[in-house]
Design a binder for these strands. Structure first.
Lengths: 310, 310
DNA sequence: ACGATTCTCTGACTAGAGTCAGAGAATTGG
DNA sequence: CCAATTCTCTGACTCTAGTCAGAGAATCGT
């Protein structure tokens, strides 16, 4: 990459880092410590488990406890034991807390407005479209992919979204009961595995494998959240799944898919999958693909440049 | 402005603020406290006076002293009394300090690279071009406009640039001696005023007024640095000048300009200036404009964006 | 010349944002 | 059922990034 690009990125980092940091501190952190504001915000209107909060904000449990205690002392939140698991605590906003959160909301709006306000209408439109795209591009490098149990709420959410999308896109809809199964018990070791992709803690995609002794692993449940498409995340998931299959002794991967899922079909083809004859009787499938896995990892092909109109 | 735009800007602020903040801390702040790194960086290869450093970084003098002492203890800087004014101290990097600064430079590059690295070549190009544009657009809201004496170095620089541009653009060049004057003594109260626009400390434009008792104020020296054009800065300067004229009792503003300055002519027209007959004998002018000022401000005064003290 | 101002330095203090090592309760896995 | 693990809480620390008041030296303005 050329030096000029690096310099551009550096200049941008400096300007934007300073500007946003300063504004956030000034507007959002005035009334109370930033840590408390962040927590207050993250609790959200419906409440949340403390452990979730901790993971999302990446805070130490001791620190978190104290932040919550302080918020509670100010009557902004209520802490109650979780119904299902009495080790965990559930945080809820009080009426006062909701008001305070709304205030934070207004301030966030004001910060955003301070970016837009000095610009002409055309420039505003421009700014917004560029931020949208940049956010996508920057987000791409923050995605993490990890094995996760299919029973976690996030995993369930991904699978649900996946089913909902199939149902919307397949002609005649989709009913998971009629499809070949890949339920929770089949997607944990040693029978299989589920990968969840996350962007800043939030699930943005998934992909699963079912292992078969001395037979190709089966690829299932490939899905990427609509807002994160076009960033090569599908390909990253696919590569990660292949690595996992290889580590679990599979010499090949195979999968079936529906013709409505055009991007997926294109992805499989470009990732080296060859169309093969139907190897199962999945009623929703139109295409069956297979790929032999190299013993040593193959060089990743260049990611496709996805164009979007602005 | 619609809510969706505000939401986009907010989402962007959140992602970018966190991402850049985190990376900067991680990469640049590892070896020593961020404050020290910032100072080390700001000293630069040629050294600098402590007071300049303090103003630039906006630090308390006591704090600054301690930061410098710590850097000195680590043999990264040398402190010596200033030659001309023995109250002030002059900071210089030692050999070790220069090496450390280079290291910071490398890390900054690495941070920038970490943005580019996960992207495809097309996406990289896209990222860079969007950052460039976004930096311009965000910069616009950081511009501050204030009255300044025409004798300051920055004011002089602006006027010089203005003359140089006229000389380049007018057919047959421009010689300020042949033009109607508006020199330093005429551009300070009560005879007149000079406005300087600044972006993060650097001058990016100017505009001046000459007041005449019971007669229209004269607009002079409107200029915007080429890199900041197209951001509506000219219009902001113009509005600011009109406010100033009104505050000084002028009921109207008038000005003359050269046909080579097409953007300026367009700006005056679109800001409500009507072309009038020549009211003076400026040899370089082709157009004379005038605008009556409303008694109550017709447009809400442009805000200066929100500033923070670093 | 001399009072006001500027610049640096010192000491004393604060708040925010954590980290770390346990301890005690509840739940899970085998 | 029991051991391991998970989750929250407490107490005791740390580090960074300041702020504030005042003192002493040098310089400036008149």
């Amino acid at each position: 990459m050329d030096a000029a690009s690096i310099q551009t990125v550096r200049a941008f980092n400096r300007l934007v880092g300073e500007r946003i940091g300063a504004l956030n501190d000034e507007f959002l952190g005035r009334r109370r410590p930033m840590g408390e504001s962040r927590v207050l915000w993250e609790v959200g209107p419906d409440g949340v488990e403390v452990r979730t909060l901790r993971v999302r904000l990446g805070l130490d449990s001791g620190y978190m406890t104290r932040v919550l205690q302080s918020l509670q002392k100010h009557r902004l939140i209520k802490l109650e034991p979780d119904r299902e698991d009495r080790r965990v605590r559930f945080v809820r906003l009080t009426r006062l807390g909701r008001a305070e959160r709304q205030e934070l909301d207004r301030r966030s709006d004001a910060v955003a407005w301070s970016f837009l306000e000095p610009l002409s209408p055309q420039q505003r439109t421009r700014l917004v479209s560029e931020m949208t795209e940049l956010e996508r591009l920057l987000g791409a490098s923050l995605v993490t992919i990890a094995v996760e149990k299919p029973t976690t709420p996030d995993a369930r959410w991904c699978i649900q979204q996946y089913f909902a999308e199939l149902n919307a896109r397949f002609e005649g809809g989709f009913d998971s009961a009629r499809s070949i199964s890949a339920d929770s018990s089949e997607l944990v070791a040693p029978a299989g595995a589920l990968l969840i992709a996350r962007l800043r803690g939030r699930p943005v995609g998934c992909g699963a494998l079912k292992f078969h002794h001395r037979a190709p692993a089966e690829l299932k449940r490939m899905w990427v959240v609509p807002g994160a498409r076009g960033l090569g995340l599908g390909r990253r998931l696919l590569l990660e799944l292949e690595r996992l299959a290889r580590r679990n002794g599979a010499g090949a991967v195979r999968l079936e898919t529906n013709r409505a899922l055009k991007e997926a079909v294109a992805l499989y083809r470009s990732a080296g999958y060859r169309e093969v004859k139907a190897f199962n009787d999945e009623p929703y499938a139109h295409h069956w693909f297979a790929k032999r896995l190299a013993t040593s990892p193959p060089v990743p092909p260049p990611s496709r440049g996805i164009r979007r109109g602005r």
